[in-house]
Simulated assay, not measured.
Amino acid sequence: MPKVEIELGTLTNTCFIIMPFNPTFQSEYESIIRPAVEAVKLTPIRADEIYSRPRVTADIWKGLRSARIVIAELTGKNTNVFYEVGLAHSLGKPVIIITRNQDDVPFDLKALRYVYYDIDDPFWGENLKKALIRMLENVLKEKEYGTVFKGITVSGKIQYEKRKSPKKTKAEKPYYHLTGIWQGEMKVRQQTYNCNLHLVQTDGKLSGTMTISWTDEEELSVVQEAMVGEIMEDSLSLRGVSYSYLQQGASPGYNPDVFMLKVASDGNEISGPCDDTKGRKGTVKFWKRALKRNKAEHRKPI
């Protein structure tokens, strides 16, 4: 049987990202995958971006050949994704598989390392990012690559570039992952309101519920308010669309809130002016509650 020999040469400090060409996964890439890759001082390269260029297959092969690690999003059983995963395996590349549906992982790949994440879990973004960073760090400790196919030999002296932290340009827009539970307080005139905001981010849109409690005439009132909004670079808008009393106390009524908030540089604080439908103005500040949950990656440990 003839043998095929592949010369790898120098591995660049890149992580080749294989995922469907679908806007659904844009937020996942921007707020989770890219920050995780950059946290281990690698540069992410998206395979789906190459499909707009001529000589697609040659560019994909070049990107896979020089990448140190590959991350593959298998959700949706995309045929291009499976093709590129096969190329990566022929090169002996370490492939980290992620999916939001375990049935989308073929039987032949279930024995490999993969991360399952549940988008119904409000902490899925943070947990997936932490799992990816942990797996990337472990893979980077490995020094040997070997193909899984007989008859193909990966040879050549592999040289590693020195990893450097990626430099951000002024034109680069910050991207924050805001899904989670935020605690804070709202001050309107002389009244202070305690707030608990459960926020869900879907691409550039926001939705969630906010529980507001305050004491008036020594009686506790509690309101639950449905919120919607959108993200605009380093700021976001939120507005109440409906509310209901969990406990009315001495409150004669409640007016839905409108927030225009700035996001802190670390993404863990949002604050700004608030208003309501009656024109009463104030300020509000939220802090992201510390996460205590952490889903472990499934299958083969690293």
Rank of each mutant, 00 (worst) to 15 (best):
V81P: 01
N101F: 05
V85H: 00
I119A: 08
A47M: 13
L64V: 09
V258S: 11
F82L: 12
E144L: 11
M135I: 13
L199M: 14
R189K: 11
E137W: 04
T10S: 10
A171M: 06
Y245H: 09
L236E: 01
Y51P: 01
S165I: 11
M210T: 10
S52D: 12
Y175A: 10
F107S: 12
G184I: 02
E297L: 12
G86C: 05
L42S: 06
G151A: 08
V115N: 00
K168D: 09
P23T: 14
D266A: 05
H177T: 03
P35I: 03
K167Y: 05
G86A: 13
K281H: 09
E30S: 07
E38A: 05
Y243W: 15
L109V: 03
S165T: 14
P256K: 10
R239V: 02
N294D: 14
E144A: 13
R293W: 07
T24V: 13
V258F: 09
K170S: 07
D266T: 10
T99M: 04
K295V: 04
M19V: 02
Q201D: 00
T99N: 04
G92P: 07
L206D: 10
S207R: 15
L178N: 07
V56W: 09
G92N: 09
K162D: 09
S242M: 06
P54H: 14
I270M: 14
I50T: 14
E5I: 11
A72Q: 04
S271R: 15
Y116S: 07
P106K: 13
A264M: 02
K93Y: 03
C274F: 03
T75E: 03
L42N: 03
L42W: 02
C195N: 10
I98A: 01
F16R: 03
I60R: 08
T192N: 11
A226V: 08
L109A: 14
E49Q: 14
W287S: 07
D118E: 13
S265T: 13
C195M: 12
